[in-house]
C-alpha cells in the first residue's frame, strides 16, 4: 500500500524527517549544550521527590496502560531519572504496570538504576509490580494503592485513557504532588484539571532529552524541531498556493474510480453533459492536491506477468507458491 498510494512524495518527506533526526544526532555528538526551552513540569520532579522524602511517604509512578511501544519506553526512561533522584534520597518507590512486557522492561531498568547508584541492597523487586492488564481492574488496584500508601508524589506519564481522571483525582484527594502527561490528547484536559504539572503532547517526548541532556536525545529533539518547521513551511506554502489556485477557472477535472483505485483527468470537451462544465478549481483540482494524491492511470496498473509453465490450476494458488519459494531463495 505504499508507493502506488502515496507516490514518491510521501516517501521523500518521511526520509527527510528521518534524515533530520540522524543528522542532528551526529551534529549533537560533536557539540555541547544545545538549547532546550524550559519545561515546567520537569523542573518539579526534584521538589516532588524532596517533599515525599520529608513526609516519609512513597513516590508512585504509572507508565499508562499501553503495550510495549515508544510511549511506554519513554515513560520508563523518565521514571529511571525519577528513581535515580529517589534512590539518592532513599525515598521508597512504586511503579505499577498494566502490561507484562512493559513490566519486564521496567523491572530491568529500575534495577539497573539502583545498581548504578551503588544501592543494589536497597532495591526491592516488588516495588515494580504488575497490577492487572484489564483497564479498570488496574484503575481500582492503583487507586487503592494510592489511598493506602498515601503517596506523596505521583507521576502519571504514558498512554492513559479513561482511567486518567480516576488516578488524578484519587491522588489529589490524598494531597499528592502530581506530574502527569499523556500522548492521548483526549485525556490531557483531565490531567490539566486535576494535576499540578502537565506535560502536553510532545513535551512528553522531549522530557528525557531535557532531563539527561544526552547528546543523542538532544540531537534527536533538534531534528524533530527541524521536522516541525518543515511541516509548518509545507502548510504555509500550501496555504498560499491553494488560496491562489482556487481563484482560477479550470476546464478539466480529476475523476476518481474508487473501485479500481485509478483516476484520470477529464476535460470539459470529453465530459458528459451533466458531469461538469467550466468552473472554479476545487481542492481536488489543485497542484498541491495532486502532489499528495498522485494520479494512478489504468495503464500503470495494467501489468502483465508471465504464466508459470509448471502451474497446476485447481487446488493450489500459484502466485502464493511462487511468493513462498522466493522467500526460501531470498532468505
Amino acid at each position: 500500500m505504499q508507493y502506488l498510494d502515496t507516490g514518491p512524495f510521501g516517501i521523500l518527506v518521511t526520509l527527510m524527517m528521518v534524515a533530520f533526526v540522524l543528522i542532528n544526532i551526529f551534529r549533537a555528538k560533536g557539540s555541547k549544550g544545545l538549547y532546550i526551552r524550559r519545561i515546567a513540569g520537569l523542573n518539579a520532579i526534584d521538589d516532588a521527590i524532596g517533599r515525599a522524602t520529608e513526609m516519609g511517604r512513597p513516590v508512585l509512578m504509572v507508565p499508562g496502560i499501553g503495550g510495549l511501544d515508544a510511549v511506554s519506553v519513554q515513560a520508563i526512561n523518565i521514571f529511571a531519572q525519577v528513581t535515580k533522584t529517589a534512590a539518592q534520597f532513599t525515598t521508597p518507590i512504586r511503579l505499577c504496570c498494566a502490561d507484562a512486557a512493559v513490566y519486564t522492561v521496567a523491572q530491568e531498568v529500575i534495577r539497573d538504576v539502583y545498581q548504578k547508584e551503588g544501592m543494589s541492597d536497597r532495591y526491592d523487586s516488588t516495588s515494580v509490580q504488575f497490577v492487572s492488564d484489564r483497564q479498570f481492574a488496574f484503575a481500582a488496584g492503583v487507586s487503592g494503592m494510592i489511598l493506602r500508601d498515601k503517596a506523596a508524589a505521583t507521576f502519571f506519564l504514558g498512554a492513559f485513557f479513561a482511567e486518567s481522571l480516576i488516578f488524578a483525582e484519587t491522588a489529589n484527594a490524598v494531597g499528592a504532588i502530581q506530574v502527569a502527561g499523556s500522548t492521548q490528547t483526549s485525556q490531557t484536559p483531565f490531567f490539566i484539571a486535576a494535576c499540578d504539572y502537565v506535560l502536553i503532547g510532545d513535551e512528553f517526548y522531549a522530557a528525557s532529552a531535557y532531563l539527561t541532556r544526552e547528546p543523542v536525545l538532544v540531537g534527536s529533539l533538534v531534528g524533530q524541531d527541524w521536522g516541525k518547521l518543515a511541516i509548518i513551511c509545507m502548510i504555509l506554502l500550501g496555504f498560499v498556493t491553494m488560496s491562489a489556485e482556487r481563484l482560477q477557472i479550470t476546464n478539466e477535472a480529476r475523476v476518481d474510480d474508487p473501485d479500481k483505485g485509478t483516476s484520470k483527468i477529464v476535460s470539459v470537451a470529453e465530459a458528459t453533459k451533466d458531469q461538469f462544465r467550466e468552473r472554479r478549481k476545487r481542492a481536488s483540482d489543485t497542484v498541491v492536491h495532486r502532489i499528495f494524491n498522485p494520479i494512478r492511470t489504468e495503464e500503470a496498473l495494467d501489468i502483465k506477468r508471465e504464466k508459470d509453465p509448471n502451474f497446476v490450476p485447481p487446488a493450489t494458488n500459484g502466485a502464493e507458491g511462487n511468493g513462498t519459494e522466493a522467500a526460501g531463495g531470498g532468505a
Binding site: 498510494d5 502515496t6 510521501g10 518527506v13 518521511t14 502548510i235 491562489a244 482556487r246 481563484l247
Partner: peptide
Amino acid sequence: WWNTYGPQILNSMRPVIPT
C-alpha cells in the same frame, strides 16, 4: 508515518481568499 500525517498536512492547507 506518512499514511497517518500526510493527509492531515494536506487538509491543513486551506484557501483563504473568498471567491
